[in-house]
Design a protein around this nucleic acid. Structure first.
Lengths: 170, 170
DNA sequence: GTGACAATAGTCAATATTGATTAATCAGCA
DNA sequence: TGCTGATTAATCAATATTGACTATTGTCAC
């Protein structure tokens, strides 16, 4: 559902073709959303079938022919509907990727601490990358700020875990 | 990959059947992991095919017959391997579910603020639920603590967004 | 002893997702 | 002109995921 909201929102800013859309999402937005090219095309098809977007074969300059997608009136309505649902509902991202911390005690304490240090460095690297990321227009920028905020608080949490682990008796 | 780590980790604590596994994951752990019953069975099959778990038809008491899964030696090895990878790598949960904030400015400010207030209440409800959740054993408890920590920082962030929005001129 | 209801255990058809690959066009150069 | 590699644009086969459903066993009132 969120992916459709994203696509509708982007097409709302300006009609465009699949390639530009997916390049933007997999490029500039790759840090905050997970939406691969084939999924995007799959969803665009669905959206077309639902009448939310219009497809048009176009040929700009000497580029290969493209399918250009543009929002219809009912697409705008659906966007407004989904946006309200999305803003009003809070749902925690499922932390399945952090699942390892549930099993740290399966590893010798010294090695576990070393692994967590590596983790910490990865986190710092990501913080750096995000800080040097290109600025986005309007409230898209909020996404980036949120991400930086989350990275900061993840770092703080990781540090308390590391601290606790190194203090507790083996 | 993380889901397999989770299943291996749980089976490592004690061998059990699909029903108990999925009931636990979809019940007590539902707040922090997203793994539905059919996916769990699908993965258990794969794990059996890879030789990481052994399947055994059992019949305890008068209950319907079950397939009991237990970790093999190579399953334990795989668990250790995946655990190290998971602990050492940090990856941000993709915030696709927060995507709406990227489009707040498509909505009239007053309504947007009202929606965000609703969002805030949902968040508070979740915090309450998590605080009254049953305690987990060992480092599984860390997952819960992490979740509470994340909820707290999400609340703080949401409040800054609301504050900023209500101050900025329309 | 049997019919209704709950609990237990799992499956399946439909849908979503992705890594790998294909297809069309262009720019430059021999 | 014809060939090579780069860019643009999209698709496909394989895999993962899930909502809805099925099937088995127990239990308890009647």
């Amino acid at each position: 559902m969120e992916r459709i909201l994203l696509l509708l929102g982007l097409l709302r800013q300006h009609a465009t073709h699949g390639y530009e859309l997916t390049a933007f999402v997999e490029g500039a937005m790759s840090a905050c959303v997970d939406l691969k090219k084939p999924t995007a095309y799959f969803l665009l098809d669905k959206m077309a079938a639902s009448g939310w977007v219009m497809v048009q074969e176009t040929r700009e300059g000497n580029r290969p022919p493209r399918k250009t997608y543009s929002l219809t009136t009912s697409g705008e309505a659906e966007f407004q509907r989904l946006l309200r649902i999305n803003l009003a509902a809070f749902s925690l991202p499922k932390l399945s990727n952090d699942i390892g911390i549930a099993f740290v005690d399966a590893i010798d304490k010294a090695e576990a601490l070393a692994l967590l240090q590596t983790r910490r460095e990865h986190l710092l690297t990501q913080m750096n990358q995000t800080q040097h990321a290109p600025q986005h227009a309007g409230s898209l920028q909020l996404l980036i700020e949120h991400q930086q905020y989350v990275l900061n608080s993840e770092l703080a949490w990781l540090d308390t875990v590391i601290l606790r682990m190194s203090q507790v008796a083996t």
